[in-house]
Design a protein around this nucleic acid. Structure first.
Lengths: 187, 187
DNA sequence: CGTTTCATGTAAGTGGTTACATGATTTC
DNA sequence: GAAATCATGTAACCACTTACATGAAACG
């Protein structure tokens, strides 16, 4: 899914400036969609020249001026079209899992760190989502709420599974397999 | 994570040809890592010129010849280095969730389809992973087994959550928001 | 005082995707 | 007969990433 559509979506959810969108991606959104910050401003400008958003400059004193964006009817239509056409992919894009697949080849410290880091991120996101549901969840559209609840379910399942199975990785395999002495035969 | 490292990983897991790797990506691997098939052959050739893999041609009658690849010691070292350096990202890259966030703007049929398709994929993958664990799981390295088990946990959690919450989406919100009637384009 | 927050961009480079090409054999 | 499987690639394009640039104010 391209950055432009993602930005339009953010604008429909109430964001106003490129900075707002960037923040949203760093927080909730970013958990399941990737966008580079610099790409956002670019996309916004492209959308503007295409007539899909309208911009208005806001002078500010004490802090940088900003540019507020609003989708035009054409932009909304384009968004809906993109939504309807986008194949509904869903995958756990994870270098962490790739790393864990090859856990034997990596220093235990790195594995430990990676696991700790991820569980930390998960608990933070869980808390954050939980708070959002309580505060704003009531007034949010059902789709948004659904995704938040679903996300919570998954993140909690991940945490639980990691905690339960973690020891399987940390216990070095009894004897058979220590590091990789000879790895041709694997096949 | 770049295609080359991914290919090296696949070779360490026992794959031999580009085609094998491609298949692995379409099956298990592909669930959490993206690679375009055409990129694989390219990557393999690059790896060969870099001296990270060795190739041997296999003449076949009745079907196309193939090129079997094997990592060199240098390749193995490069792989381990890449593993150690790669940040252990983990995110649910999901256009499906994006779609669901804006469920009100999409035709109920599309939502229904997307959900059905995904649950179908999930059950298939669950069965497949389950079977793998029973058949080959015993002899597989612990990292691989861990990921398979973790994957099962998550996929089951997803299925359960989707089934439980699905009705929240299908029930149109009481009054306020009934789709978007002006959806001229694709819809 | 140093760092984070706010706020918006440019420039260069490339890795990856899409689309195309080939062709025998087995399966339905 | 049509379609899928096996098997390997080339060519071109461009969206995205990384790195860099700027600068005031608030926070600690």
């Amino acid at each position: 899914m391209d950055t432009k559509t993602l930005c339009l979506g953010a604008l429909l959810l109430g964001d106003k400036t490129g900075y707002d969108i960037k923040k949203r991606f760093e927080e909730s959104f970013g958990f399941f969609l990737d966008v580079a910050p610099s790409g956002i401003y670019r996309a916004l400008n492209d959308l503007e020249t295409a007539g899909d958003v309208e911009a208005s400059l806001v002078q500010q004193t004490g802090r940088p001026n900003k540019k507020m964006f609003k989708p035009t009817p054409a932009g909304v239509a384009a968004f809906d079209r993109a939504l309807a056409q986008t194949p509904a992919r869903h995958r756990v894009h994870s270098e962490l899992l790739f790393l864990l697949m090859f856990a034997e080849r990596v220093s235990p410290a790195k594995i430990e760190d990676a696991l700790n880091h991820h569980t930390g991120e998960l608990t933070a996101l869980i808390d954050q989502t939980d708070a959002w549901l309580k505060e704003e969840g009531g007034s949010a559209p059902p789709g948004l709420r659904f995704v938040a609840r679903f996300g919570l379910d998954i993140m909690r399942a991940e945490l639980e599974s990691l905690e339960r199975r973690r020891s399987d990785l940390e216990r070095a395999p009894p004897e058979a397999q220590h590091a990789n002495p000879d790895l041709e035969p694997v096949a």
